[in-house]
Structure formats: C-alpha cells, structure tokens
Design a binder for these strands. Structure first.
Length: 261
DNA sequence: TCTGGGGTCCTAGGACCC
DNA sequence: TCTGGGGTCCTAGGACCC
C-alpha cells in the first residue's frame, strides 16, 4: 500500500487571548490539536502527528519529532535548547550541499550555528541570514493561502536511453497533453516553454523560449518543444529523460494592448 | 537511494535601455 | 568612440522540498 503524507499549517493566534504570553498561547492550543487528532482518527481511521509552536519552522519540527501519532509542543522558552542538539540538516532549506559546506566550517549541529560568529554567506548565500534566524528558532513567514501555480511540467525517464524519433515524439506528445490539461484546469496560458533532456551520463540541459502570446494547447506546446530541441540540437545522443515545462503563467486570452496614437 | 516526478527559489551572465 | 552606472528582462543551471 502506498503511503500518503499531508502537511497543513494552522494559524490560531487570532483566537488566543491578547494577554497571554507566547508560551501560554502554545499551551492553550493543545486541546485543539488533540481534537484534530481525534477527529482525523474517527473520520478517516488515520493517525496524525501535530506540532505546536510559535512559527511554521518550529511547528513542522515539532510535528516530525514523535512521528507516528505524536503531539509535541515547543515553547518559546525552550526553543533554543530544543534546537541545539539537532543536525543542521534539520533546518528546512539545508540539504546535502549546504550541510557539507557548513561541515567544512566545523558546524554540525544547530547549536554550532547558534554559537558561531563566522560569516555563513560563503556556503549559504543569501540564505545565510535566514539560516542564523532558524538556528535560534525565529521564523516570520506567514501562512500562505494562495494556490497560484508558477510553473507546470512533465517529464519521462526511458527504460532504455533512446534517440529514436518515434519514441521521443510519442513521449513529447503525451507530456504536451498533460501540461495543456493542467493549464486548462487552472485556466491559464503560458508565455515560456521549456524542454529538458538528460543524457546517459546524467548530464541535464534545459532550453526555453519566451513567447509574445500565451500558449494553451498541446499542439502548440508540442510544436515549440520540437522546435527547441531542433534549434539547440539536443538530440545528438541517446536520452535518458525528456521533459516539457511551461512558466510565466498568465490569463489565456491576454491580448497585447495597443495604445491608440 | 547510482539517481522518479513535479514543484519553488536563487544566482549569474548577457542583452538592452535610459 | 569610449566612458559610466543602474535597472529590468531573459536564459540556464543548481539546491532543495515533498
């Protein structure tokens, strides 16, 4: 049976008494969390892990803490100590590359991050500022309620690497159709079309083009994808993967406005 | 995870404009 | 003709997340 994981954030701060301290507010949310867990079990027969804290970063960390069926609170007064022993990779946004970069600076745990005065820009770029904030449990990201899509894509990895044109065309047509259907579902067109290829040695290239008018149909997307592949001569060796993506999503009927002069 | 698929965000260089 | 600087758009690639 396949697993399915869902994550949701709930901002209940507006329902708390103004006079409460942050820690009192976190504690006050406990009955609500217990009720949510109870109803998920009752209505869906599923367990859920809930984390309660003062921001999204800590709430997610808390929900991961006691994985199956947990309910974890991280109080503001405890957060710095709670974070100290955790590896830097526990911070959302720190993957293998950043973790290795931090390791070369001698920084393995979040506690190391709290204690260091070294500049972190060399390994984390503009993320360095947020990285230091997270190390102390600070995070001011709001809950994002918009469901706006920035891009839509489809890709296919072949069982056996291929440069056979019929196989590539068939894959491109299917992906163009998938992308066009998603565009239609969201009621948008795309001003940018991208192709992606990956070769046997895992080298991956992308090429894109910016259009004057948004595309909406699978035929247009397919045609532009073929054009990009040809123009940049991307199919000179067998492909392991081929993909199509669209971005710069706009209203489909958008017309170029002309000023009457 | 010797590597699947669909996303977001960031960076850096070049073109182009003022 | 070369000199500056700043801003925006486009393109390509990479890190990261789920």
């Amino acid at each position: 049976l396949a697993g399915l994981a869902l994550l949701a954030y709930l901002d209940v701060s507006a329902h708390l008494d103004e006079s409460m301290t942050v820690d009192e507010g976190i504690e006050a949310a406990r009955p609500l969390a217990a009720e949510i867990k109870r109803r998920i079990r009752e209505e869906y027969g599923l367990s859920a892990s809930v984390g309660i804290s003062s921001n999204k970063f800590l709430a997610k960390l808390a929900s991961d803490f006691q994985k199956p069926d947990g309910l974890t609170l991280i109080k503001d007064s405890d957060k710095v100590a709670f974070l100290r022993p955790l590896p830097v990779s526990a911070i959302h946004g720190v993957g293998p590359v950043t973790a290795e970069g931090l390791r070369t600076l001698g920084l393995m745990t979040i506690g190391d991050l709290q204690d260091t005065s070294q500049p972190l820009e060399s390994v984390a770029g503009s993320f360095a500022v947020r990285l230091r904030e997270r190390a102390f449990g600070n995070d001011d990201r709001p809950i994002d309620l918009s469901d706006e899509r920035k891009s839509i894509s489809a890709e296919h990895t072949f069982l056996n690497d291929t440069d056979a044109r019929p196989a590539l065309r068939a894959a491109l047509k299917k992906m163009a159709l998938d992308v066009a259907q998603t565009l239609r579902k969201h009621g948008v067109g795309a001003l940018t079309v991208q192709v992606k290829v990956r070769y046997t040695d895992f080298t991956t290239l992308t090429r894109q083009v910016r259009l004057e008018e948004p595309v909406t149909t699978d035929r247009e997307i397919y045609r532009i994808a073929c054009h990009l592949l040809a123009r940049h001569q991307l199919v000179t060796a067998p492909l392991r993967l081929i993909g199509i993506g669209v971005s710069t999503l706009v209203a489909p009927s958008q017309q170029q406005l002309r000023l009457p002069i």
